[in-house]
Design a protein around this nucleic acid. Structure first.
Length: 859
RNA sequence: GCCUGGGUGGCGGAAUUGGUAGACGCAAGGGACUUAAAAUCCCUCGGUCCUUGAGGCUGUGCGGGUUCAAUUCCCGCCCCAGGCACCA
C-alpha cells in the first residue's frame, strides 16, 4: 500500500469540513486559547509566505487543542485595498467581483492545506456588516475629538488627476504615465493616536510576550525625547522663531537658523524682497525632492538666505535665517538652531555658506580651534564660550541651561515625539466610506448613527485618471445635511485599510453580532486578548501600533475590556526570492522567465535583488504545485523544517523532496510493523528493558521531551521535526523483532505511536490516517499530548571530552553525574593526555559537569 | 540616511545559560539491489597538511579584545534584509 497523500488529505478535510471539527463556542469550564494569524489581503492566490504563516499558526493551534485548551482559530479577509482598483483598471473587473473571486479561490486553497479554522467566524472587511461598525466608531471618535481634519500633503499626478500611493511613485514619476509627481495639499482626516502616546509607550515595557526587537522599533517610532522649546526673536519684528532642541547645552554656539523650506514662514520672510522669486523656486524644488533622501547624511545640503535675522536669546548675537532642504517640516516646529561646531549637518552647511563657527564644547585633554575644524565635534566635553556655564560638563549643563531659559522666560522644557497622528484619508474608491457630510451652512456634520452604514456604492466606473470615482457619483455625493436639512455633500474620502485590520480580531469573537456596537462584550471578555498572534515582521511597527491604539480607544468606549490586544507575538521572517526583470516588459513571474528569457520578447532576463516575495515584484512561488505534486502535509512540514519561524527564508526548490521522502519513510516503517503491532498493548512505565530495546524506549521518551520543549517554549519546529526524524531513524536501525516477541513489538508500537502523535499538529492528515490504521476509534487530534517519563528518558552514561588549554584532545565515557574529582583523575590518567602533558605543569583543571574537563598547562 | 534584525560547510539549518562547531535534511560522490531505470538500503562528505592517525593545523562575514574556554560577551568595520507613516 503506497502513501497516497491526495486521497488521505481530501478524505480528512472533507470530514473536518462536514463535522465542523474546529468550530468553537465559549465554554467557561475550559481554558481558552486565542490563536490568531494575520489575515491575508485577497490578492488572488495564496503564496508561500501565507503557507508558512498559517502552517506555523496551525501547528500551535492544534498543539494547544491537544493540550486541552478551547482554541479559537479564525480566518478572514483584509478585503479593501489598492490592488483591487488596479485590477479593475487593468482588467475591467469590478473590485468587488475581483475581491470575492479571489477570496473564493484562496479559501479553497487554505482548506486544501488542512488548516484547523473555525470557518463559521469568517470575516470579510469589504462587507457593510463589517465596516458599518468602524463607521460607528468613527462617529464616536469624531465626538471625542479623536478624529479630526487637518491640511496635509499627498503625492499627485497632474496628468492622471489622481492621488498616488508611495508605491505608485517610481523615482519621482507616476508609475502609469511617468509624469513628474507633485505635492498637493488637501484637507484630510486624522486619528489622534497621539492622545494615547504615553500609554502606548509605557505598555512597551508591559508586553513580555513580544519580541524585544519589535518593542524597540515601536519605542523608537514613538520617539519620545526630552528637550527645550526656545524662542529666537526676529530682528525688526515682535515675533520670534520657536525651535525645539534636545541640545540646549550647545545654545551658545548657535550661529544661524534653519527652516524647513515648505513652512509658510519661509515665504512670509521673503515676501516683498528682491529674492522672493528665487526663494519660491527653491521651495518648489525642495518639495519635489524625495523626503527620505533629503535628511540623508550624503545628500546635498541646500539652502537659501532669506535676508532675515533672529537673535540668539543667550548670546544676543544676530543669526542669519536660511530655508533648507534637510530640516523636516513636521518634526518639532520645523525650525532648527544651527550649531555648526557640534552638528555635522550644520557644519557642512556653515562651510558651504561661509557662516561663523563658535566652539562651545571642548573635549577633555584637547583644544578645538574653530578655524581648523574639518568636521563637527559631537562627543561629550566641557563647556566653553558659554557665559556662566563655562567649565561645566555638557551633559550636566542640559538641566542648568533649561532652568536658565525658563527663568529668562525665553524657553521651557518640553517633550517631543516623533510619532505623528494617523492620517486615514484615502482619495480612493475601494475602502470604507468616512461617515461625514459637508454642509455649506453647518460645515462638517457627522452622519446620524441611525443612517449607518454608509454603503460603498457598486455602480462606479474605474479608470486610471480622474481621481476617486466616488466624487463623480452624484447619487452618492448628493445628500441633505442632518443638521439643517439643506443640500449637502458626502465625504468622498475612504478609510486607510489599516483601520479594518485594527479590530478584526475583536470581530472574530462575535462575527455575527448585528446590534450596536457590533461586538458582544460577553464573548469578547471570554476570548480577548489574543494569546498568540503570528505574522510577518514587516508589520512590526505600523499595523501593530495602530491595532494597539484602536484597542485602547475601544476600551475607553467600553466596547472591550482589555488594554492590549496581543499577549504574545511571533514575528515570522519573510519568504524572499530574487526578482527577475525584462528591460522591456518589467518584472516577470518565474514561469514567465523560463530559461532566463522573457516569455514575450525572448530578451535576456536581468536577475535583480533578493526581496520579500510580493505580487508587485512578481517574485512569487505558487504553492499549488507543491500540494499537487506532494500533498499538503509535505508542503506544511517543508515550510517548518526549512528554517525557524522568525528567520527569513530565502526560497529554493531544493529540500521539498526530502520532506516528502520522510513522510514516505514513516509510512513504510509503519506498514512494516502494522500487522504485528495492531493488537499489541504498550508496556507499563515500570517495565524493565535491556540493550537495544531500552535504548529505543529512551529515545522515544527523549523525543517527547525535545518536541514538547521545542514547540511550547520556542516555536522551533525545525528541530522538533529533526527529533522525530531521529526517532524514526532509530526504529529503522532496530533489528526487526520476531512476530512473537510481544515485548519488542510493544516498544516499537510505543515509538511509532509517539512519532505519530508528535507529528499530528505538523502533518495532520497522514498521522490521522496512520492512527486509524492502528485500530484507534478516536481521532489523533483528540488525543492528549503525551508526557515523557523522566526515568526512562535519562541517560546512564555520557561522553565527557578532555581539553588541554581549551583544545579537544580526548574523550571518555563515564557514568552520568559522576563525582568531579574522580572524573578529573580519570582525565589526567588518560594515556593520550599523559603523553601530551609530559613534564608540563598543570596549572588548573576545570570540570563542567557532564560536559568536559579542561586541563590548563603552562606552555 | 535613520531605526531594527541577520551573516555558521556546496545549500537550508543545529549547537536552549560562555563549555565537544556542523544535529537533522538537501545536493554531490561511491557501493548494494535490478536486465535496466526509478524507488529503497548502506558508506563518504568544512578546508588543509603529512608521517593516513582514535593524526596535526585551521575554520562560525572581517579586524581587535575579555576568558582556562567565544558561533555565543565587548569595541570597530563590511555585506544582506525589513520598516520609514498612501503596498498590505
Amino acid at each position: 500500500m503506497k502513501y497516497d497523500p491526495h486521497k488521505i488529505e481530501e478524505k480528512w478535510q472533507k470530514k473536518w469540513d462536514k463535522e465542523k471539527t474546529f468550530k468553537v463556542t465559549e465554554d467557561p469550564q475550559k481554558k481558552k486559547y486565542y490563536l490568531l494569524e494575520m489575515f491575508p489581503y485577497p490578492s488572488g492566490k495564496i503564496h508561500i509566505g501565507h503557507v508558512r504563516n498559517y502552517t506555523i499558526g496551525d501547528v500551535v493551534a492544534r498543539y494547544k487543542r491537544m493540550k486541552g485548551y478551547n482554541v479559537l482559530h479564525p480566518m478572514g479577509w483584509d478585503a479593501f485595498g489598492l490592488p483591487a482598483e488596479n485590477a479593475a483598471i487593468e482588467h475591467k473587473i469590478h473590485p468587488l467581483k475581483w475581491t470575492n473571486d479571489n477570496i473564493a479561490h484562496m479559501k479553497k486553497q487554505l482548506k486544501r492545506m488542512g488548516f484547523s479554522y473555525d470557518w463559521d467566524r469568517e470575516v470579510s472587511t469589504c462587507e457593510p456588516q463589517y465596516y458599518r461598525w468602524e463607521q460607528l466608531f468613527f462617529l464616536w471618535m469624531y465626538e471625542k475629538g479623536l478624529a479630526y481634519k487637518k491640511r496635509s500633503t499627498v503625492n499627485y499626478c497632474g496628468k492622471c488627476e489622481t492621488v498616488l500611493a508611495n508605491e505608485q511613485v517610481e523615482g519621482g514619476l507616476c508609475w502609469r504615465c511617468s509624469t513628474e509627481v507633485t505635492e498637493k495639499t488637501l484637507d484630510q482626516w486624522f486619528f489622534k493616536i497621539t492622545a494615547y502616546i504615553d500609554e502606548l509607550l509605557e505598555y512597551c515595557d508591559k508586553l513580555p510576550g513580544w519580541p524585544e526587537k519589535v518593542l524597540t522599533m515601536q519605542k523608537n517610532w514613538i520617539g519620545k525625547s526630552y528637550g527645550c522649546e526656545v524662542d529666537f526673536p526676529l530682528i525688526g519684528s515682535n515675533k520670534a522663531i520657536k525651535i525645539f532642541t534636545t541640545r540646549q547645552d550647545t545654545l551658545f554656539g548657535a550661529t544661524f537658523m534653519l527652516i524647513a523650506a515648505e513652512l509658510p514662514l519661509v515665504m512670509e520672510l521673503a515676501k516683498g524682497k528682491a529674492i522672493e522669486n528665487d526663494v519660491r523656486q527653491f521651495v518648489e524644488k525642495v518639495k519635489k525632492q524625495d523626503k527620505l533622501m533629503r535628511t540623508s547624511e550624503y545628500y546635498e545640503k541646500e539652502g537659501i538666505f532669506l535676508e532675515a535675522y533672529c537673535e540668539n536669546p543667550l548670546t544676543g548675537k544676530h543669526m542669519p535665517i536660511y530655508a533648507t532642504n534637510f530640516v523636516l517640516a513636521d518634526y518639532g516646529t520645523g525650525c532648527v538652531m544651527a550649531v555648526p561646531t557640534h552638528d555635522q549637518r550644520d557644519f557642512e552647511f556653515a562651510k558651504k555658506f561661509n557662516l561663523p563657527l563658535i566652539v562651545v564644547i571642548q573635549p577633555k585633554g584637547k583644544t578645538l580651534d574653530a578655524e581648523k575644524m574639518t568636521e563637527a565635534y559631537t562627543e561629550e566635553g566641557i563647556l566653553v564660550n558659554s557665559g556662566k556655564f563655562d567649565g561645566m560638563e555638557n551633559l550636566k549643563a542640559l538641566e542648568n541651561i533649561a532652568d536658565y531659559l525658563e527663568s529668562l522666560d525665553r524657553g521651557k522644557r518640553t517633550i517631543q515625539y516623533r510619532l505623528r497622528d494617523w492620517g486615514i484619508s484615502r482619495q480612493r474608491y475601494w475602502g470604507a466610506p468616512i461617515p461625514m457630510i459637508n454642509c455649506k451652512k453647518c460645515g462638517i456634520v457627522p452622519v446620524k448613527e441611525t443612517d449607518l452604514p454608509i454603503v460603498l456604492p457598486r455602480d462606479v466606473v474605474l479608470s486610471a485618471e480622474g481621481g476617486s470615482p466616488l466624487t463623480a457619483l452624484k447619487k452618492f455625493v448628493e445628500t441633505t445635511c442632518p443638521n439643517c436639512g439643506n443640500d449637502a455633500q458626502r465625504e468622498t474620502d475612504t478609510m486607510d485599510t489599516f483601520v479594518e485590520s485594527s479590530w478584526y480580531f475583536d470581530r472574530y469573537c462575535s462575527p455575527d453580532t448585528d446590534i450596536k456596537p457590533g461586538l458582544d462584550r460577553k464573548k469578547l471578555d471570554y476570548w480577548m486578548p489574543v494569546d498568540q498572534y503570528i505574522g510577518g515582521v514587516e508589520h512590526a511597527i505600523m499595523h501593530l501600533l495602530y491595532a494597539r491604539f484602536y484597542t485602547k480607544m475601544l476600551r475607553d468606549f467600553g466596547v472591550i475590556g482589555v488594554d492590549e490586544p496581543f499577549t504574545n507575538l511571533l514575528t515570522q521572517g519573510m519568504v524572499c526570492k530574487e526578482t527577475m526583470k525584462c528591460t522591456e516588459h518589467g518584472y516577470l513571474f518565474p514561469e514567465q522567465a523560463a530559461e532566463g528569457k522573457c516569455h514575450l520578447c525572448q530578451k535576456e532576463v536581468i536577475i535583480g535583488k533578493t526581496e520579500k516575495m510580493s505580487k508587485s515584484l512578481k517574485n512569487v512561488i505558487d504553492p499549488d504545485y507543491l500540494v499537487q505534486t506532494y500533498g499538503a502535509d509535505t508542503a506544511r512540514i517543508f515550510c517548518l523544517f526549512t528554517a525557524p519561524p522568525e528567520k527569513d527564508l530565502e526560497w529554493s526548490d531544493q529540500g521539498v523532496e526530502g520532506s516528502f521522502r520522510f513522510l514516505n519513510r514513516l509510512w513504510r516503517i509503519f506498514l512494516e510493523y502494522w500487522e504485528d503491532i495492531k493488537k499489541i498493548k504498550t508496556l507499563s512505565i515500570s517495565h524493565q528493558l535491556e540493550g537495544e530495546l531500552k535504548n529505543l524506549r529512551r529515545k522515544t521518551h527523549q523525543t517527547i521531551r525535545k518536541v514538547t520543549i521545542d514547540i511550547e517554549d520556542r516555536f522551533h519546529f525545525n528541530t522538533a521535526i529533526s527529533a522525530v526524524m531521529e526517532l524514526v531513524n532509530a526504529i529503522y536501525q532496530l533489528e526487526r523483532p520476531a512476530s512473537t516477541d510481544k515485548i519488542a513489538l510493544a516498544v516499537v508500537r510505543e515509538a511509532l505511536e509517539t512519532a505519530i502523535i508528535l507529528l499530528t499538529p505538523i502533518v495532520p492528515h497522514i498521522t490521522e490516517e496512520l492512527w486509524k490504521m492502528l485500530g484507534n476509534k478516536t481521532e489523533v487530534s483528540d488525543v492528549s499530548w503525551p508526557e515523557y517519563d523522566k526515568a526512562i528518558a535519562s541517560e546512564e552514561e555520557i561522553t565527557v571530552v578532555v581539553q588541554i588549554n581549551g583544545k579537544l584532545r580526548s574523550r571518555m565515557i563515564v557514568p552520568v553525574d559522576e563525582d568531579a574529582e574522580k572524573i578529573k583523575a580519570v582525565a589526567l590518567a588518560d594515556e593520550k593526555i599523559k603523553s601530551l602533558i609530559k613534564d608540563a605543569k598543570v596549572a588548573k583543571v576545570i570540570y563542567v559537569p557532564n560536559k568536559l574537563v579542561n586541563i590548563v598547562i603552562a606552555s
